[in-house]
Design a protein around this nucleic acid. Structure first.
Lengths: 219, 219
DNA sequence: ATTATCTATAGATCTATAGATAATGC
DNA sequence: ATTATCTATAGATCTATAGATAATGC
């Protein structure tokens, strides 16, 4: 970190993204001026426009950069169901990876998902990706759920509930709680508990998830 | 609703609050100008300052008006534990009331809780009330949880997870999902499932919650 | 020629204060 | 006298465009 607070060794464009990520997370989109972003980078406000057509494009880029990896990962996991891994194991893997990603992110970038400005048409693509993610949570959850639970919580509701659980980490970080890898695990376990699974089933899923994650890492 | 979009029959001050609630929920705090609020009410921008010292006081008032009832209710419920109701029953009642309140609110006012501006010192009182609410969720959850769950999810984490679950409704509404009282129930049930409780225990808690809520309504 | 900055600046907007005005209530 | 509005306006922003400048790469 240099005096301006942006890691050096990044390209100009990347420095802008890093500065904006921090400011948008703290003060929101409308609450962050282009001047504030530029100041953190150490350039003039107007110089931002060489790299981005507008402030909204900076946010759009941050969003696409932050969901893309999750979507890709999710698809590689779901492709192994049910041959290589049970729905419960896949869901455990997905939830713990998502929680871990949100936890490890530089400035709690997950808070960007909560910004009211995302309701704008401009960010529809991002919202669609989230719906896609929620659907996958819903499908895996539905397949893994205890019948009693599946009958009262449909696939769509289940997706919303499970994604909401995985994103608990965002609130924990916002509340300045110290989080660790253990939290990723307990959150993933909570997802399975919501499905009505018992302790033994949760442990099986945890083990399966560990195996499949090790397999993916080896690829 | 009159032409400006604010219900008539409210005092000037209340009209301002109603207009601001809608705009803050949709566009955020910094994304809403005092002019936009005034326009919706049908007065001049400067006239707002007769009723409020500043834009931030409008938000502060909306926040205090929206947590206060929940906090009061929560305390009246917790006072009946464990004599009149088990921790599981109390948690079911609390979660379903919170979900129902968030669901019934005029413009999805719960989205205000997600605004980045709330991190400002100015809103510390509101944040403290939320911490208080989360602690109660944590205490009830801890008392009701299956031992295996209680040992991996401490009271503090549990509080965060349970509150997060109850607030799933905010996201459902944001995503334009139609919600009903049934969702309040399934969300409350999900809270108990997270604690490691089985179907029979959830049903017992549901019945207890119904009884205690009927009792409170009779007071 | 391209890349990445800079200065100058337009033009819009934003919050908030000061003080006038009109209606209502004592 | 109090309540609730209004007009006028200060003063500070904010986003974005135009065009100059300087360094690097062919």
């Amino acid at each position: 970190m240099n005096a301006e607070g942006v890691p050096s060794g990044l390209s100009g464009r990347e420095q802008i993204l890093a500065a904006a990520a921090e400011l948008f997370s703290e003060s929101g989109f409308s609450g962050t001026s282009t001047r504030a972003i530029a100041e953190k980078v150490g350039i003039r406000q107007q110089s931002l426009y060489y790299h981005f057509a507008g402030k909204d494009e900076i946010l759009a880029e941050l969003l696409s950069g932050s969901v893309r990896p999750s979507i890709d990962f999710v698809e590689s996991i779901e492709a192994r169901v049910p041959g290589d891994v049970s729905p419960a194991g896949a869901l455990f893997a997905l939830a713990s990876i998502d929680a871990g990603t949100l936890r490890a992110t530089p400035h709690n970038i997950g808070t960007l998902y909560l910004l009211p400005e995302l309701q704008d048409d401009r960010y529809e693509q991002f919202r669609r990706q989230r719906v896609q993610l929620r659907r996958i949570y819903g499908r895996l959850g539905s397949a893994a759920a205890h019948p009693d639970v599946a009958s009262s919580l449909g696939e769509s509701r289940l997706g919303a509930v499970l994604l909401q659980l995985a994103e608990t980490v965002i609130q924990l970080r916002r509340d300045d709680e110290d989080t660790s890898g253990h939290d990723d695990d307990t959150i993933a376990a909570s997802c399975l508990r919501v499905l009505g699974l018992g302790g033994a089933e949760v442990e099986t899923a945890r083990a399966e998830a560990a195996a499949v994650l090790a397999g993916l890492a080896a690829d």
